[in-house]
Amino acid sequence: MPIVIWQLVFFVFPLIFLVVMSFWLVINYRMVPGWDTVNWTKMYSKGYFWDTYWRTLAYAMIATITTTILAFPCSFALAFKVSATLRRWALFFLIVPFFTSYLVRIYSWQIFLNDNGIFNRMFDYLGLGPFHLLNNFFGTLVGYLTLCLPLAVVLQLISLANVDRNLIEAAHNLGCGRLKTVFLVIVPMAKIGIILGAVFTFILSFGDFVSPYYLGGSKPPTLSILIIDTTKSGQQWPRAAVVAVTMIITLLTIMFASVSAAYRKKP
């Protein structure tokens, strides 16, 4: 049972402590234990906080929809249109970037996207541009895709590879068109993988600070940037804790709702 002890001490306990800390006070730049709701009322009464909250939610939603849509044709092709060997290698090469330095990959996108970067130089040769690709939501979205696309393809692919081929054959024999088969037979059967991919995309982009900071220009901020600014500039840790607890509650709600949707049997 070592994991229980370890996770309790170093995972659950810090999170509980975060909740407790959100009720503490900061007096003369020092944190003082207490049970005061001032941090909550202060944060929740700020228009700035809610703007940031809804913006972060909207960013994560857009990232989720974009990633899911962009990932599907790729995982579909890998599941049905290529040999098993090629599929294994594709899986292999998709897992590698998921675990490798996200930070450096984001920096590489800066080289492509900045006003004097590779893309704008190319547009220049074509007599186009310059386009502002960095320090706006487009940049942020490229970052979210870098983070989430490989994972979404992997999760969708695992689900699609387990779809019963006989059912697809049956749909074709019964005169169901290609696209119709995809949307009425294949997508519902691969529902779990598609939803899991979307949930992880949502979690990762909702909490990520690197893309909105280095590709989105950090202004306007997202909730994670708000946490960093509040923590690193001074001693307002209790207020950062308020933001963090709000984020966790949001994430848990969305995770619970979508996972129960994924595993729900059809009525």
Binding site: I3, V4, Q7, L8, F10, F11, V12, F13, P14, L15, F17, L18, M21, I203, F206, G207, D208, F209, S224, I227, I228, T231, W237, A240, A241, A244, M247, I248, L251, M255
Partner: peptide, 24 residues
């Protein structure tokens, strides 16, 4: 509960884990 405790950490945003660990 045991399994969710064991598998949940990757779903908590890293910034929040960072703040929680730092505070504790």
């Amino acid at each position: 509960l045991y399994l969710s405790l064991a598998l949940l950490p990757p779903t908590i945003p890293l910034v929040i884990m960072g703040l929680a660990m730092l505070a504790l």
